[in-house]
Design a binder for these strands. Structure first.
Lengths: 263, 263
DNA sequence: GTAGCGTTCATACACATGTTTAAATCTTCG
DNA sequence: CGAAGATTTAAACATGTGTATGAACGCTAC
């Protein structure tokens, strides 16, 4: 389909892709206009439609370049690990297979200047086009990993597992997209940067409880039920009713102490 | 400032607000144009600017109507509970103070048709206007709850706590915004709907480990380090190198078994 | 009835978006 | 050189957006 495309200065294509990547990382798909892209790339407005055909085709090219190697590596790593451990993998290990290739690629300069943030944007972008692209191009890999998680957590129903996975990945992409990675990297002992491996271990530590934590006990449910059934009189009356209303919540302390992790 | 505004048919204002709420829930702030709003409300295009002054003012009015009571209830509930339990609250309890008012308001028909989804949209909308509004109107309450969490989890540094809270709330808003609440409500024992209290208990069960889970052990970090340092040769070479490469990962099984939760 | 006022309406403005066109320019090779 | 083809350019198009204007409508009170 594509001709050789190797004449003249020729790097306009590359510059357009670079500018697109930056602007997408910074603001997402909708906030990234062709005029911004071409201005940043030092190219003419029509260049995008000449070299790629449309804005969506340009974005598709970028996503393909960035995401295809990632998913290929993920599948390879997962398959290889499963082959090597027929006794089964734990949920944390499967999470590792999902993240380790991303961290590997993040080290290559060839894979973009801020690979993690790019990934975060991709997974959390609200644009219909991006969501459709992901749904189409990620079906095989997501199914593959779902099966792996399902084997690692046989006690969970498939619906429950889907819910928890969705929950975990939403948290992750929201984190990757923002500036928060920096915080995650340099936090805790303030100032000292941590290695990729430590960062990865932290991520897995935060995410795997989402997959494995048991649901609330009947006792907790009962306490919450009582808290819920107190009509929200604070909203209507003034402030005097506060103490009177809350004195009804005298059944709470057991749960509050039971569920809490005081120092 | 506002006049009594009580003449003629007069319900245009209300219809505009209702249409705005629906369209915001369905697509977010940017996807919601004045022409869509007015068409859905059966009003003229100019009606928004006549009754509210601008699109942003209209949205601000909606957010104020929906969010102000929520935050007032949250603050009241937290203060009352703290007063009643001077020995301190657990992290799960503070999470409860954050969510219980939302569930209470969700029962009122007067607070909109899909209060939870509205909340999810508000917290996850990428529009600059919405984010600024939240940052301005939520500073007191977020600071207040941060202190409560900080007291409940004194072992965590403030940076660490901020990170984990951000993480947890990203997961939550991503979940609320989608259709996934339905799944959460009707899942597990397929078909049987669960009560609000059970749902709330599940949410807290999923979120509180994010706040309390310890970070990865040095042993895990070491395994991950080794997995990371294998160059991603799968990306470059063909498929024959797979088994050879992965045979280097023979140090993994300890961690994989240690970290996993096999049936 | 008619003046006044709140409300609705059709319309236009200024701007931003993705896309297209045709001319101008550059590069390459016979 | 000079023709052919690839690339760049400026300009326009069609559409969508929030906002503003001035005329028309409907009701109330004098």
């Amino acid at each position: 389909m594509n001709k050789t495309q190797r004449t003249g200065s020729g790097d306009t294509r590359k510059r357009l892709l670079e500018a697109t990547e930056w602007l997408f990382i910074e603001g997402g798909y909708d906030a990234m206009s062709l005029r911004h892209i071409t201005a940043r790339a030092g190219a003419n407005l029509a260049a995008v439609n000449y070299h790629f055909g449309s804005k969506e085709a340009l974005m598709q090219e970028l996503l393909s370049q960035r995401l295809d190697p990632l998913n290929r590596d993920r599948l390879h790593l997962l398959s290889a690990c499963e082959r090597q451990h027929p006794e089964g993998l734990g949920a944390a290990a499967v999470l590792g297979m999902l993240f380790i290739p991303a961290f590997r690629l993040n080290r290559d300069e060839s894979c973009g200047p801020a690979y993690m943030r790019l990934l975060g944007r991709v997974y959390s972008d609200p644009s219909l086009f991006i969501r459709n692209y992901l749904q189409q191009h990620y079906r095989p890999i997501s199914g593959r990993f779902f099966e792996a998680f399902s084997r690692a957590l046989p006690a969970l129903s498939r619906q429950d597992l889907g819910l928890r996975l969705h929950f975990a990945l939403k948290a992750l992409s929201g984190m990757l997209a923002g500036e928060d990675m920096r915080v995650l990297v340099t936090s805790i002992n303030q100032g000292t940067t941590i290695t990729d491996a430590e960062l990865l271990a932290r991520l897995i530590s935060l995410l795997s409880p989402i997959l494995t934590a048991p649901f609330g006990t009947p006792a907790q449910v009962k306490v919450i039920e009582q808290l819920l059934q107190l009509d929200g009189s604070t909203a209507r009356s003034g402030g005097a009713a506060d103490t009177a209303q809350v004195s009804d919540e005298s059944t709470a302390p057991q749960w509050i102490k039971e569920g809490g992790l005081a120092s």
